[in-house]
Amino acid sequence: MPVLELRDVSKSFGALKVAQGISFAVENGEALGIIGPNGAGKSTLFNLITGNVTLDAGSITFDGNDVTRAAPMKRCAAGLGRTFQIPQPFSKLTVFENLLVAAGFGSSATETEAVGRCADILVETGLVEKANATAGSLSLLQRKRLELARALATDPKLLLLDEIAGGLTQGECAALVNTIRAIHARGVSIIWIEHVLHALNSVVERLLVLDFGKVIGIGAPDEIMASKDVREIYLGIEV
């Protein structure tokens, strides 16, 4: 059974159509990558899935339930975790408190369970030494890790990662990919928007290509990367 299913999802901002009849499904335990040029509507698609932006038409089913009109916090409580492309930490709270908010509100954990889980996630994401530092004082890599850690603290069934490897050095990126792989290996489904293709392709089982709010291809990474349309639109290679 698919963990997430979108049917004919459309959204316009005035005359700008950012999503045009998007339909796809993500199977339970699958990792799906999303690529596309800047302005293709990738982050808007995430906002539509999480409910931060309301859709004009279509429907979204998550874990067997229609969540089309559900508020973001309801979707989060149902198991939809997300990161933001530009990290959005709770700057005046500590790293640990950032996770505690997510565990306290986004999951059904008791306070004692939440503390243990947050600490384990901080260890896994390499942030435990910064646990009591304010989130506003973190470096870019640490902020990206905090985005991931905070999303994990909600105990998601499906994790939406928005360009989490962007702006990182190769070493930092490799370490982050290992962490994401470990999360995926635990059975967490993932949708990952990324421009760093080698990182993306080392984790995902399928790729979806978005352009001007339309799905122009979905399939195995090798097939997608070999596709004429994708090479022209996304990679800018004339075929």
Partner: peptide, 23 residues
């Protein structure tokens, strides 16, 4: 309380707070 932590999260970033389940 948990609600107090939620309030602090809203103060810092309402959109992110809603995304992690804060009403």
């Amino acid at each position: 309380t948990r609600q107090g932590l939620g309030l602090a999260a809203i103060r810092d970033n309402q959109e992110a707070a809603r995304s992690v389940g804060v009403d």
